[in-house]
């Protein structure tokens, strides 16, 4: 017999297998597990409430219609959804940029223009700039975790500090980062 709330403990692969069979219970479980993250990523990139909701819907509808495009060997479902949310949100920002241009300047939307591609760069540049402004003790842990992908344990060893201290620094770094992004007008931060 399955325990109550069995869906809460389903693995990524099992969730995706059930989604492939059209199981709404699995979709509800995925939503309950990941919607806050997906919506928050979308809100941060789009900076607009309704857009964040639209993006969240798009992401979960894509998970519903094409769960087979997720490959558990390549990463976690959480990571896949985060990329998808980011991608859809950037799409939205691009479309908004096109819409806000004077009509005479509109060009074929099917291929991203240099201007639209530059928007991608803007998203990453904002984050990179905020990271660069962090104090060195914070910047180095962020760099090691997110850019060098070192486990917390290895970071702690390399810096000669306890793991707990490393985690505290990471938490503080992210708080500073969120504040920097908010000051730069980054929605949701």
């Amino acid at each position: 017999m399955l325990p109550d709330h069995a869906e809460a403990i389903l693995t990524d692969d099992e969730l995706v297998r059930r989604l492939g069979l059209g199981d709404e219970v699995a979709l509800a479980a995925a939503y309950d597990r990941f919607a806050t993250m997906v919506h928050a990523v979308a809100a941060r990139v789009c900076g607009e409430r309704h857009a964040a909701e639209d993006v969240t819907q798009q992401v979960f509808l894509q998970l519903w219609t094409s769960p087979g495009t997720f490959d558990g060997h390549k990463g976690s479902l959480r990571g896949w959804l985060a990329v998808l949310a980011h991608r859809r949100a950037v799409d939205w920002v691009r479309r908004e940029a096109v819409r806000s241009r004077p009509s005479y300047a509109r060009v074929d939307d099917s291929a991203p223009s240099a201007e639209e591609q530059a928007l991608d760069a803007t998203v990453a540049r904002r984050v990179a700039a905020a990271v660069d402004q962090l104090p060195e003790t914070y910047r180095e842990v962020v760099r090691m975790l997110y850019y060098e992908e070192l486990p917390v344990r290895v970071i702690a060893d390399r810096l000669g500090i306890p793991e707990g201290t490393t985690k505290t620094r990471l938490r503080a770094a992210r708080q500073r980062l969120a504040a920097e992004l908010a000051a730069a007008g980054w929605a949701g931060a």
Partner: peptide, 16 residues
């Protein structure tokens, strides 16, 4: 960048 954004969102979630 997106991993960092995802974690920032987790720290300070904007609830749907």
């Amino acid at each position: 960048v997106w991993r960092l954004l995802s974690d920032l969102s987790e720290d300070d979630p904007v609830a749907p």
